[in-house]
Design a binder for these strands. Structure first.
Lengths: 135, 135
DNA sequence: TAGCATAATGACAACCGGTTTCACTATCGT
DNA sequence: ACGATAGTGAAACCGGTTGTCATTATGCTA
């Protein structure tokens, strides 16, 4: 993460993203970062997220309310995590739990795109409990 | 699939969807069905797809070129299939290849949403070969 | 068969997330 | 300082999807 230019904005976005501790949309990131950098534009937030994805710091984790949401993850190499579709809470999975699926796909003549499965949709205990209440 | 009203349009859409034999967007469905029902509107295609999803005949299988794509599947009960992200080709996976992942998620306190994982992104042999050529 | 209630339809407009444009600014190297 | 260039942000734009609403098709009943 080169210091580069316009350190202020980038640092505000990075700080905001890291303090989320969950999956978040670009709009949420922008709103959070504006506390520290009021003049920050939404366009820059989108461009920064695109850059983070290119550099491997972030990956898309589905959508929530029509908006794409992303997770920050510095873990290198092959890994997967689960993301609560309701609140965005995340957890890193130990080992590669998708190897059987990959093998099964292979016998069908398909190459499973693990890269697109970095984030598996799930529901955390808190949100599952809230569901039961409202039901 | 109740005969219901406006049998003509629904049958044209159903026929078009079934003859696809791959994942397709609503616009593609509409275009294909128009051969048999020229006056069919795009709005109805969208509404029909929504209905199919509610009734469990179709499920979303990601996006291609900015459009959501869907797969038709009459298989009942728990199952997963792979979908080629390039051409939309599909294959049904034997057994539940995601059980290890589900178990791994559970130990992390998350409930894996198998329903949202009905279609796993992959690449078929044909498209993988085409990739090598263009590379 | 005529007439009514209602689901379904389709042209069109509105909506919304996301991207592009473009004039302007901040930063770096010299 | 100063020129070159990456970065920025407001606003226009884009395309997929959804909402609106007057019209039409269908089933039911008399």
């Amino acid at each position: 993460m080169e210091p580069g230019r316009n350190r202020k904005n980038r640092m505000a976005l990075l700080e905001a993203g890291r303090s989320m501790n969950r999956a978040f949309s670009v709009r949420e990131l922008h709103t959070a970062a504006r506390d520290a950098a009021p003049r920050l534009g939404l366009t820059t937030a989108y461009r920064t997220m695109e850059r983070w994805r290119e550099e491997g710091w972030a990956e898309e984790a589905g959508t929530r309310g029509g908006e794409a949401v992303y997770v920050l993850c510095a873990a290198q190499g092959h890994h997967h995590h689960v993301v609560c579709v309701d609140c965005g809470a995340t957890a890193l999975l130990e080992g590669c739990a998708l190897e059987p699926a990959r093998e099964s796909a292979r016998t069908a003549g398909f190459d499973l795109l693990d890269a697109a499965l970095g984030s598996l949709p799930a529901r955390c205990q808190a949100c599952a409990g809230a569901d039961e209440q409202s039901a």
